[in-house]
């Protein structure tokens, strides 16, 4: 039953995604005249092309990246409670941003690079510790434990920096909630290219992901090296999540909840789950951002707030449903 109609589900999600993207372009904290905006005329044209278009693209890209990263991490660790945060991404990126704000406040435009570097560095530390403690087959629990340790360390460093320099807390708090209010088009080119390439790579690895889901013994008997595969999938996830964090801030929750909804819809299987996640993640982020912009017009809330408000109840619903099955 769950197997049939996967194409239809993907098509429905794709249509919803296009509609949400269109809505994200058309609506916002101010009303614009679409006809003149589309001709690129006046302030409405500037709002459409310089503000809403990059913002919409950013929401779509970060949704793709975090959702795909979630699927990859959950597969790599064999733990469906794992998300990009677990490999230290958020705390690493957060610490780097805070460090940068404290010491180079004038270089504000380089923040995305700091976030990316911090996320990758934290993930690398997690992999290193995990490979030292996981034995030769790279047990998945060692990755999670290493993640907890690295997260704790970076969170302590974040607290230290923010106590020493309370001025940076304002900028940091916007970053930590996550949102797209200040995204510019030029920020998106590099992370966008990484996200699209990494998502495509993840799709190519879906057979490998199915094999790793069979556990280390069976995956080995199929010729795979499970430890290498886990590291590769997690590295791909780190690349995706760091790219997203660099322009969207710590929008972590989508990476946890999207794979669950997607696997519920897909009936299992890495390729289907990944395809649906790549549609569902952007949809969830776009809707959250749209609500964030329009709910308290003309003021704005960060998208991360609505992400949690939309995602958490649904997530809890899925957990309860699964427990009863």
């Amino acid at each position: 039953m769950a197997d049939c109609g996967i194409g239809r589900k993907a098509a429905v999600l794709a249509v919803l995604l296009v509609l949400a993207a269109a809505a994200s372009l058309a609506y916002g904290s101010t009303d614009i005249d679409l006809a003149s905006a589309l001709r690129g005329e006046g302030p409405d044209g500037i709002i459409l092309f310089s503000i809403r278009l990059p913002r919409t693209a950013a929401a779509v890209l970060s949704g793709m990246a975090l959702a795909a990263a979630g699927v990859l991490i959950q597969t790599a660790t064999g733990n469906d409670l794992a998300s990009p945060n677990i490999i230290g991404m958020n705390s690493g990126a957060g610490f780097a941003v805070l460090l940068f704000l404290s010491f180079f406040p004038e270089l504000f435009s380089l923040l995305p690079i700091a976030a990316f570097a911090g996320g990758i560095a934290a993930a690398a530390a997690v992999f290193l510790i995990s490979s030292l403690t996981g034995g030769r087959t790279g047990r998945s629990s060692s990755l999670i434990l290493a993640g907890i340790a690295v997260n704790a360390l970076f969170n302590a460093l974040i607290s230290t920096l923010s106590s020493l320099d309370p001025d940076v807390m304002g900028s940091y708090s916007a970053f930590s909630i996550g949102g797209f209010a200040s995204v510019r088009g030029s920020q998106l080119a590099v992370p966008g290219a990484i996200i699209i390439a990494s998502s495509a790579a993840a799709l190519l690895f879906s057979d490998v992901m199915d094999a790793i889901m069979l556990g280390d013994e069976l995956a080995s008997s199929f010729g795979y090296r499970p430890g290498h595969i886990r590291a590769m999938l997690a590295a791909l996830a780190a690349l995706l999540a760091s790219s997203a964090v660099s322009f969207s801030g710590l929008l972590g929750f989508v990476g946890l909840v999207t794979p669950h909804i997607a696997s519920h819809l897909s009936g299992g299987g890495s390729r289907r789950t990944l395809v649906l996640s790549l549609l569902l993640g952007p949809l969830l982020v776009l809707l959250s951002d749209l609500l964030a912009r329009t709910a308290v017009r003309p003021s704005e809330l960060p998208a991360g707030v609505f992400m949690a408000m939309l995602g958490v109840p649904f997530f809890i619903f899925l957990l309860i449903r699964r427990a009863r099955r």
Binding site: A2, D3, M213, L214, G215, S263
Partner: peptide, 8 residues
Amino acid sequence: LLPSPDLT
């Protein structure tokens, strides 16, 4: 020890 992958 058999795995329990989320596959059909």
